[in-house]
Amino acid sequence: MTIHIGANPGEIAETVLLPGDPLRAKWAAETFLENARQVNDVRGMLGFTGEWNGNPVTIQGSGMGMPSLSIYVNELISTFGAKTLIRIGSCGAMQQDVGLRDVILAMTASTLSTPSRGIFKELNFAPCADWSLLKAAAQAAEAKGTPTHVGGIYSADVFYDERPDLNEQMVRHGILGVEMEAAELYNLAARYQRRALAVLTVSDHLLTGEALPSDQRQSSFGDMVEIALQAAFAD
């Protein structure tokens, strides 16, 4: 048990999926896991542990933004021994050829700053995904026929952005999409020698203004969860 995770020893699996929304964690656990049981409800940030194809899996909400995710990932690694951590979440597309409901596999995550910036100081550390997870996720997505894009994303500090000039440079440099958590996840995975990946579903488009209605977002995310699970346990 930690300050933010009320699970008992042995209740958190070595493989953890990390949606930002705790209700999405509940939906994913009920939809994809067998024998799912709630193991955390501290501050309403729900976590569940069950089995997928006989493999123990925890699905733990991580909240919005890198500071929130950093709290949960630090505790999952340091206290509960998590070894594979996969963010499953939504993102905004930043390229014309990326469509709504497409999946983005984040090879790298650029950012202005993260909670880890104080450690790196003047160094611009380049956090990236675990290669074995990235490769397995790409293969799983191809096998499912899911429209998928692999490349760099941008992890933003703010949701209501007032830097159109920065967005223009992200688009110019081929960044596929924007979200708010993956860069710090990759930093922590590198620091503690863990495997990490961000599997993201496009819910809106910064260039076209298109967006999925809120009632369609959850139902559109099934492919993302299946891809994450298959990647986590690929041979």
Score class of each variant (00 low, 15 high):
133 L>I: 11
31 T>D: 04
69 L>F: 04
196 A>G: 02
28 A>G: 03
216 Q>G: 09
33 L>G: 08
213 P>L: 12
170 M>N: 10
67 P>H: 05
73 V>D: 01
63 G>E: 05
53 N>W: 06
150 V>S: 10
56 P>M: 02
128 C>D: 10
191 R>M: 05
210 E>V: 07
68 S>A: 13
89 G>T: 03
9 P>W: 10
118 G>F: 07
189 A>R: 04
130 D>S: 15
171 V>N: 04
141 A>W: 05
19 P>K: 01
92 G>D: 03
222 G>Q: 15
94 M>R: 11
113 S>I: 11
228 A>M: 11
161 D>V: 12
12 I>Y: 05
182 A>M: 08
16 V>C: 01
36 A>C: 07
67 P>Y: 02
46 L>R: 07
175 I>S: 05
146 T>N: 08
115 P>K: 07
119 I>G: 01
121 K>W: 12
67 P>I: 02
5 I>Y: 01
127 P>Q: 06
119 I>K: 02
135 K>F: 13
162 E>N: 14
157 D>V: 12
197 L>P: 01
89 G>M: 01
191 R>Y: 03
168 E>N: 11
109 A>E: 08
166 L>M: 12
139 Q>W: 08
37 R>M: 11
218 Q>G: 11
139 Q>G: 12
150 V>L: 15
160 Y>W: 13
21 D>L: 09
222 G>E: 15
50 G>I: 04
61 G>T: 00
198 A>Q: 09
139 Q>E: 15
60 Q>I: 00
218 Q>W: 13
19 P>E: 03
15 T>D: 02
60 Q>A: 00
47 G>D: 03
129 A>M: 07
64 M>K: 12
219 S>F: 10
158 V>D: 15
202 V>R: 04
129 A>W: 07
141 A>I: 05
125 F>I: 07
192 Y>T: 01
33 L>T: 08
36 A>T: 06
168 E>G: 14
168 E>F: 09
32 F>R: 09
119 I>E: 02
25 A>Y: 04
122 E>T: 11
131 W>L: 13
87 R>A: 03
13 A>F: 06
124 N>A: 14
180 M>G: 02
209 G>T: 04
87 R>Y: 04
212 L>P: 10
207 L>K: 08
115 P>E: 09
31 T>G: 05
123 L>P: 02
87 R>N: 04
11 E>Y: 08
146 T>P: 08
179 E>R: 00
77 I>P: 01
11 E>S: 08
174 G>Q: 02
65 G>E: 01
29 A>C: 03
165 D>N: 09
193 Q>L: 10
235 D>H: 12
68 S>Q: 11
37 R>K: 15
191 R>E: 00
86 I>S: 10
229 L>T: 10
71 I>M: 08
40 N>H: 05
34 E>S: 10
42 V>F: 08
222 G>I: 12
206 L>S: 08
210 E>R: 10
67 P>D: 03
224 M>D: 13
132 S>M: 07
65 G>V: 00
185 L>Q: 04
177 G>W: 06
102 D>C: 12
203 S>N: 13
219 S>G: 14
192 Y>D: 00
12 I>K: 07
70 S>P: 00
88 I>P: 10
119 I>S: 01
234 A>W: 10
186 Y>M: 11
38 Q>M: 08
149 H>W: 06
232 A>K: 09
43 R>D: 04
203 S>M: 12
216 Q>P: 12
198 A>S: 15
144 K>P: 14
